[in-house]
């Protein structure tokens, strides 16, 4: 199969993905989950990746943020062809450039909220106390400054998510990736989280990708990319008609 040559990305694109193919082995057969995706993500915008369950949203953003190797294709993040980096270089690239918000938060149970939020700084080698102080400032901004000394299990789900958001932003990454942030929340809380993310995560020099199939929050997007069966079927400011 030949892939038609794609036009080059805009020079200032935060992420430029070209010809992304991803196959998964399922027993004897190979399933193609992404069929040659071309996509661009811009800084200063909140980009939604939406689509039905199984359409390949998680797979696509995992590839875009350097935690899943594509079967074929090229991903440039801020101009760096990330899958040409060595393993260690790629890990360090993520540490320096990308903030993650996982659906299950994955906080470390035995360290307090501030330390959890400070993990990327600690991983970069900052002394624990200094890193905690920086993280506290962010927790304050997220309105849970008074919970900084508590362990994750002493926090509500919403508070834990804020800690996870703080952890994604504390090292001021240029790209923030977030998978299904509102899946477990009711409509009101979902909106609040998205408002909060708009407020703290979106910045002129930062790109923000949100994976969701929560149509209650589509109106908050700057840009929506729709995936269907591993292909992009829509890319625009609003959802296409019929959704």
């Amino acid at each position: 199969m030949t892939i038609p040559a794609s036009p080059p990305c805009e020079a200032e694109a935060a992420i430029c993905a070209r010809g992304i193919i991803r196959d998964f082995e399922a027993g004897q057969t190979t399933i193609r989950v992404l069929h040659g995706i071309d996509a661009e993500i811009r800084s200063g915008e909140m980009t939604y990746v939406v689509g039905e369950s199984g359409s390949g949203k998680t797979t696509l953003i995992s590839i875009m943020c350097g935690i899943l190797w594509p079967t074929a294709g090229e991903v440039k993040v801020f101009g760096t062809d990330i899958y040409k980096l060595s393993d260690t270089e790629l890990v360090n690239f993520r540490l320096n450039n990308i903030g993650f918000i996982f659906q299950q938060y994955n906080l470390i149970p035995s360290i307090d909220a501030a330390a959890n939020a400070a993990v990327p700084l600690i991983a970069k080698g900052m002394p624990v106390e200094e890193a905690r102080e920086k993280a506290k400032v962010l927790l304050d901004k997220l309105n849970i400054g008074n919970q900084a000394d508590k362990l994750p299990r002493q926090l509500s789900g919403g508070q834990q998510q804020r800690v996870a958001i703080a952890r994604a932003l504390v090292h001021e990454p240029r790209l923030v990736v977030c998978d299904e942030p509102t899946a477990a929340l009711d409509a009101r809380s979902g909106r609040r989280v998205m408002d909060l993310l708009r407020e703290v995560a979106v910045a002129p020099d930062r790109a923000c990708i949100i994976v969701t199939h929560d149509n209650r929050i589509f109106d908050l997007a700057d840009r929506i990319i729709v995936l269907e069966d591993g292909r992009i079927t829509h890319d625009g400011k609003e959802m296409p008609d019929g959704h």
Binding site: I67, D87, T88, V91, N92, F93, R94, L95, N96, I98, F100, F102, Q104, N106, L107, I108, P109, V119, P120, A123, R167
Partner: peptide
């Protein structure tokens, strides 16, 4: 899961 998160965030295997 926590180890996985650390690896994603950017902690090297070493």
């Amino acid at each position: 899961k926590q180890f996985g998160a650390l690896k994603a965030i950017g902690v090297t295997n070493g």
